[in-house]
Design a protein around this nucleic acid. Structure first.
Lengths: 214, 214
DNA sequence: AAATAAAAGGGTGTTTTTCCTTGCTCAAAA
DNA sequence: TTTTGAGCAAGGAAAAACACCCTTTTATTT
């Protein structure tokens, strides 16, 4: 019997090896190899055609080259490879981003073994797999207005990181070599852009969007 | 050959099942069952003696009953059971807390399969396993001053969570049905207790110590 | 019963933040 | 060339946050 080949990409070695062990118990699948990050995968893919699998199980949060960038790359260079996202977070925007760059499935890490097997099977046989959650999400995003990507400038991001400290705005102005009143300006712009009311809102936005990591 | 029994506790089902699959490939070990959180484990342990394993692989961040609480409980009620912590985070204080409540090993989730097998073997044969990191950490904590646990009251924690929102202190006072002046008091006390200068400092402390999750 | 600690609240004054408006410069678009 | 707009700077006023002083009441300890 011909087994479908699977590659697992996750920075947590134990997790990827454990999932590998699990996938190897599935009748129709076998693991080709595992990677610690997107860069490793790109290197493998580029080195030889025999390293190109049927399915990639892709974690989203990784150092060096994250799941979204990597999936994008796969979509552009190896259209035939099916990417299934595998993540702990079920934040709407993240899932949508993965689907947008070409992932054809999305699984949370707290699903059952049987669900993973079914998902893999459906992917290679039908070409897609989505949990109900994801389906609902897609419906919403189709009907609803796109959240219109907020674009931040380099300086605004620098300022935001300072805003996440205990410095007063005057001290931030010193650090950035600008007048306090200019800093006032950045703040005001960001308040309206990000739709927040005060500095705490700014801090929360920065953290949620990984502009600042506590 | 007699196999040692292992129980895995992790809220991410896929991860725990995958690790289970891996552990089952080890010659000397077999998985008895897996749990989604500490409460489930306590229930199992309490229901019958045949559910008490040789080793518990314990995740730290879980809903309902986290790894530290659960390990504490095991230490108190089932001294013979070896608990090995298994976590993504390698923050010093967390590791120390786990060891303090009785864990006899600590593994990061990005270790190799072979390392896990060796760790399990050493635990059942020698009674302990620590990576070099953990050993170094222990040395440090023995020589150095204990960071003197900061004790927060229920009310202060409630207040802190509100402080992590965009509400003004006056609005927080309303929500907590207290005078704004009382809220002022909480803030002042916390500023000195936690050694921070302003509300942003408070927010950061709350996030770092998981009092508030963004 | 006295001492102590915690919880709630009050007064006053300073500093910081927030909001709104105005003006300048430079560069790209019409 | 004029217009438009982004980026930078700044003033003034009001609101919020912060600091430090305090009293009263209610539990808890001794």
């Amino acid at each position: 019997m011909i087994k479908y080949s699977v590659v697992i990409v996750d920075d947590h070695t134990l997790l990827s090896q454990a999932i590998a062990a699990m996938v190897n118990t599935f009748e129709k699948f076998k693991v080709l190899y595992t990677c610690k990050n997107g860069q490793e995968l790109v290197d493998k893919f580029s080195s030889s055609a025999k390293f190109i699998p049927d399915v990639v199980l892709m974690d989203i949060n990784m150092p060096i080259m994250n799941g979204i960038e990597t999936t994008q790359w796969i979509s552009e260079h190896h259209e035939g490879v099916n990417v299934m996202a595998l993540s702990v977070e079920d934040e709407d925007t993240t899932i949508l981003k993965m689907l947008k760059v070409g992932a054809i499935g999305y699984l949370l890490k707290d699903t059952e073994k049987a669900v993973l097997e079914r998902a893999l099977t459906e992917i290679v046989e039908n070409g897609f797999y989505h949990t109900k959650n994801v389906t609902n999400l897609l419906m919403k995003s189709l009907s609803g207005h796109e959240p219109e990507e907020i674009k931040l400038k380099e300086r605004e991001i620098t300022f935001m990181r300072y805003a996440c400290s205990e410095l007063t705005y005057k001290e931030v102005a010193d650090r950035m070599c600008l007048s306090p009143k200019t800093i006032d300006g950045y703040r005001d712009v960001l308040f309206t852009k990000l739709n927040v009311k005060n500095r705490v809102g700014l801090v929360m936005y920065a953290i949620k969007n990984k502009i600042y990591t506590p």
